[in-house]
Design a protein around this nucleic acid. Sequence first.
DNA 1: TTGAAAGCGCTAACAC
DNA 2: GTGTTAGCGCTTTCAA
Lengths: 348, 348
Amino acid sequence: MRRTRSASATIEGVAARAGVSRQTVSNVLNAPERVSPHTAERVRRAIAELHYRPHWAARRLRTRTSRTIGFRIQPSGPPVLGSLIDRFLHALTSQAWNAGYRLLLFTQASGDDERATYDELSATGTVDGFVIYDLRIGDRRPPWLAQRSIPFACFGRPLGSSTAARYAWVDVDGALGIAQAVDYAVSRGHRRIAYLGWHPGTCCGDDREQGWHRAMRRHRLDTAGLHSESADELAAGTDAARRLLAGDDPPTAFVCASDTLAVGARLASQVGVQVVGFDDSPVVSLLQPPMSSVRQPLEDVARAIVRLLLEQLDGNTTAEGVLLPPQLIVRDGQQPAGQQKIEKSTGS
Amino acid sequence: MRRTRSASATIEGVAARAGVSRQTVSNVLNAPERVSPHTAERVRRAIAELHYRPHWAARRLRTRTSRTIGFRIQPSGPPVLGSLIDRFLHALTSQAWNAGYRLLLFTQASGDDERATYDELSATGTVDGFVIYDLRIGDRRPPWLAQRSIPFACFGRPLGSSTAARYAWVDVDGALGIAQAVDYAVSRGHRRIAYLGWHPGTCCGDDREQGWHRAMRRHRLDTAGLHSESADELAAGTDAARRLLAGDDPPTAFVCASDTLAVGARLASQVGVQVVGFDDSPVVSLLQPPMSSVRQPLEDVARAIVRLLLEQLDGNTTAEGVLLPPQLIVRDGQQPAGQQKIEKSTGS
DNA sequence: TTGAAAGCGCTAACAC
DNA sequence: GTGTTAGCGCTTTCAA
């Protein structure tokens, strides 16, 4: 006869079967070094025979930890090419699990104060801390959480806050990524390299634009008439590219703040015009001919975020910022010296 | 001075402040009808003043319910256009939350038995049940879970199982969706309407192909030489479309089992050839010119799934199957009579 | 190295 | 309508 859910074994049952006290069973699971190998073996056998698993809630109540990380997903707004956050979510779930933590998902309750749910989950002890992302300039969540001593770690630098340095964050060096893209375009012989970015004030947009400016300066290239700001939309990318291409001395390459803008630019470009995107969205590798794009190291970001968060939960208040380098995934044309081709291009 | 996390109020503190017993406070929260309005008001004030929140784990232990639903996300395999599951995840999170449940995410631990994690989460009482998706033919999870009386609900019909009728599932009527697409193509004057599908045996592929066959028969249209089976890849769509277009009496419209195939088909098609996709991926609305696609009602799916799961948790063992109608989102050309245009097409 | 006692915070069952 | 008692399953503290 099968064990049923309603009658699952408790630590008491295991202790009885192994002929030891509850304590010893607990020690086998939580502090094996305190138990003699012989006893431990007997206990482990009893555990296996009874298919015993410690009750999650009982453990949580006793230790007063939830071993759970909260993560809020936003409704996926305007259509963009493959959401970076969805891919990040996979990495985060996996990293949290590896660290013995669970990931709890939630959404903003409609009409709710943005922070009510953070408060709820934290005050009830449902989660030990949060991972937050999509930080806007002057985002009020970091100071709000910090003031309440609620542990959190950010994907992205908290900008526009005087206390930003005190938060734990992990970000990808957008300036470096864009600079890599410019370097690559230069190595392919381009000199008129335009940048399609977002309106100033968008989260990581300023950072990426900086990368373009600096890289162009380093190569002693002129930037006049090669710059556009728009919303993060495909049509905006197309419009911007058309406008720039119509000028005197038009660009022969576009380096873009997003894949969405990049695909838009491609629609306005003839063969021979190089376009480099940002984020390495799945759809990008499907394009014909293939397009290069800057990839964010999402696994590394997730690993670092979990580490920073757990350090706080362990009481090590290391308010640290981690900046990770992205990687240009080259899909068009020959490799520049020193670059490694990471992915085969898809296609017929 | 601020309340700190470590010293949060308990039900005892609230009871003391309100001058009632712990039980009364509990009743105010869980069974308000048992408490006199006057007492309830006093208790509520005390709750507010102390910023009291019932401790999640204590509740879970006492009631022996986790109020949590488990959901496994797979690593996002080969690049496809915008993952349907990511959008479903938003809807599911929101619906679960509205029902008072939390959504717990997990991934398959590498090298693990596929079912070990389901077992772990269930046996420890970390979750009350699961939502599973991406059911393959003869998927062993449904019978495995059912045998252990672990509640679950499927997104998609469990196929290839003799006991499928006994499971709770919610699916979208793919045959109907494809039929809508065919009807629309016919209304636009097309007679040679091809179908690009997947290899037989793929989960919902057979269903969708059925829809094409039936709709074509209903319109008394010939299907010979208008059918292709391939992997769900962009290049495969392009190849298939090219092959069919090269035949005698080539198609003037393509109805596809996925947006990925549809976009592939577009790349092989000239202006005037109509292509209809499936899933209404975000990227589809970005195409120029816009493309129509069959949209799955993910909010409704999520709502029904949560309902079916909670019914099981409440002890109502309704092994029910729910089939929901999809909706053709028309983006190209004029509306056929009786069709409503749902979304503005994006573009310049 | 092992065991006994205590209690985490809450709610079901019952008495008043 | 409200209070008292008991105990969910576990781990921390302290004694043996």
